[in-house]
């Protein structure tokens, strides 16, 4: 790092080429130019980060501070602007949280969320790995890139579109029902049955994203040394033993990384997907934490309550991701947050 930076010369156009190595008045750190010289050299870089930084300030960090609403009896009509309303609302401490934790609908939403997360961890998560191994074994480059082109595609469809496809294929007025009816069979209510909703949303998620999920595993598979396979084949290892002893260990870092990310996101299960279908299926099965927040706040004007539920989710999510990262580091994986 320092090697390349000491060779960097003064930045702006008029500056003559001159090594920025310390000329030594007050070197703050060893082999570094004084701050003023570095500023003169680096100000364009600083300037470049400003627009993006300001956007994040306005639409990420400012709302983060706005979570104080969770501790208010927030009345949107108490002022002309949300800020005025904020200052004229009453501070009620953890009152909103008391309300949430005594609301059975909240616990129902939390339970639904966690059930769906666990279900998808079992039935969705391994699928891209298996698909990647399968596609990787296709020898023809042409066939392989055709398959990749097709299965990546639904990732770029909106949730409105994905749900539309499912409705048109499997819904009451869709292709499947139409064919079944013509064959004299009563079509099932796939799109509206709360009991099988968890299978439906998982199928939708698989259709949309399992193919795209392969991409990172395919990249990891490409880095496995092919000699390993040859040697183990010479040693008499069969296809399954090679899968177990070479392929899966090669994928391990990626699998761990994605598991951490998924765990940190355990309380999110696809926001738009659920809002789009909640009314067709009913709250009993389709209310998850995110939809609960939406319907309890913006849809009804009960901002403090909804903000508290959202804050609960954000804090738990933060704790989860830090814990998962810690665990990954303990078992010797690189993890998500590493200081390198």
């Amino acid at each position: 790092m320092s090697a390349s930076e000491t060779t960097v010369v003064a930045g702006s156009g008029e500056q003559p080429a001159r090594p920025a190595a310390p000329s030594g008045k007050k070197p703050r750190r060893r082999s570094r130019a004084p701050l003023r010289a570095r500023l003169r050299r680096d100000w364009p870089l600083l300037l470049m980060t400003v627009p993006a930084g300001l956007l994040l300030l306005a639409f990420h960090y400012l709302p983060t501070l706005g979570n104080v609403v969770a501790f208010l009896d927030y009345n949107p009509y108490a002022g002309d602007t949300p800020l005025q309303a904020l200052f004229s609302s009453v501070w009620i401490g953890f009152g909103n949280f008391d309300l949430i934790f005594s609301d059975p609908a909240f616990w129902q939403a939390l339970e639904n969320t966690l059930t769906i997360t666990v279900f998808q961890l079992v039935f969705f998560f391994p699928l891209p790995i298996a698909m990647a191994i399968l596609v990787n074994s296709v020898l023809s480059t042409k066939a392989r890139s055709f398959i990749q082109t097709v299965v990546y595609l639904p990732h770029f469809f909106s949730w409105v579109l994905v749900v539309t496809f499912f409705v048109q294929m499997l819904g009451g007025a869709g292709l499947l029902s139409q064919e079944l009816r013509q064959a004299g069979v009563d079509p099932p209510n796939i799109m509206t049955d709360p009991d099988t909703f968890i299978v439906l949303v998982t199928a939708e998620a698989v259709w949309k994203d399992a193919g795209w999920g392969m991409i990172i595993f395919l990249a990891a598979l490409a880095t496995i040394d092919p000699n390993l396979y040859e040697q183990s084949a010479v040693d008499g290892a069969g296809r399954w033993r090679r899968l177990w002893h070479i392929t899966l260990p090669g994928l391990r870092p990626v699998i761990v990384l994605l598991l951490i990310l998924r765990l940190g996101d355990a309380l999110s299960v696809g926001f738009e997907q659920f809002i789009l279908q909640r009314d067709a299926v009913g709250r009993g099965a389709a209310e998850v934490l995110d939809t609960f927040v939406y319907y309890q706040s913006i849809a009804t004007g009960n901002y403090g309550f909804g903000a508290a539920a959202g804050l609960f989710k954000a804090v738990v999510g933060l704790v989860l991701i830090l814990v998962a990262n810690k665990v990954a580091n303990m078992i010797g994986e690189r993890g998500l947050i590493s200081r390198s």
């Binding site: 639409f59 400012l62 979570n67 949300p82 903000a307």
Partner: peptide, 17 residues
């Protein structure tokens, strides 16, 4: 920003605000 998620309600209040 990867670790801190502002949440729906405050975002809504800021954007409309």
């Amino acid at each position: 920003t990867f670790l801190i998620y502002p949440g729906l309600v405050p975002t809504y209040l800021v954007v409309t605000g």
